[in-house]
């Protein structure tokens, strides 16, 4: 009973704050409405006794929204982020796409013949999750992580306006580097 109340309460909060994302007129409010929605989803995962996954969703989403709010406010052109502004554009197409997506996903969730449970859940679901994620796929993970790091570094290098020649001079021998801002470790 209590679980049902919590589940439906959290579900309502998740949907209502997701709607709020498009209704409010401020970038910060939209961002944090989205964060509230994700936190409600994370807490719903806790109801399923997926402690680690639930807490992780809360952690990642709050962090992501905090960083996103910053970047949106910092990099939006003509500085509208500090002013009240509409959070929707291309309303008709967006409405059609989102209603379609909702109907398809909702119908899928309701119509798929879910299998009934065989056996009991593992006593330590966090360890079981780690085993099933990292056990057989360890090789994949080991390959994927350096590739991801390399992608991030490459992306930053390609996006940065200044190259090492700007920093260290034509012969790469200027020390300390000519940076617009001093680093904190005396370089």
């Amino acid at each position: 009973m209590l679980l049902d109340v919590l589940f439906w309460g959290l579900g309502t909060v998740a949907v209502a704050s997701a709607v709020a994302v498009f209704v409010v007129d401020s970038m910060a409010r939209a961002t944090y409405a989205l964060a509230v929605s994700f936190v409600a989803v994370g807490l719903t995962l806790l109801l399923m006794e997926q402690g680690y996954l639930g807490v992780l969703v809360v952690l990642m989403m709050v962090m992501e929204m905090a960083v996103m709010g910053v970047y949106m406010v910092m990099f939006m052109g003509m500085n509208p982020a500090l002013m009240p502004m509409s959070m929707v554009h291309d309303k008709r197409a967006a409405l059609v796409v989102s209603v379609l997506a909702f109907v398809v996903l909702g119908a899928g969730a309701l119509l798929v013949p879910w299998p009934s449970r065989r056996g009991l859940p593992d006593p330590d679901v966090t360890a079981a999750l780690g085993e099933s994620l990292m056990g057989p796929q360890m090789l994949t993970m080991v390959v994927v992580s350096p590739v991801m790091v390399a992608t991030i570094v490459t992306g930053v290098v390609l996006a940065a306006g200044r190259t090492r020649y700007d920093r260290f001079g034509d012969d790469l021998d200027v020390r300390p580097p000519r940076d617009p801002q001093r680093g904190g470790v005396g370089r």
Binding site: A35, G51, Y52, V55, L59, V62, M63, V70, V73, T126
Partner: peptide, 26 residues
Amino acid sequence: DLDVGVVWFTALDVLVWALVWLLGWG
């Protein structure tokens, strides 16, 4: 008594990011 208390603490200190920034923004 959470079985993932350490991760919960990390989630909370990330929440501080959001709160202090909002304090400045609001």
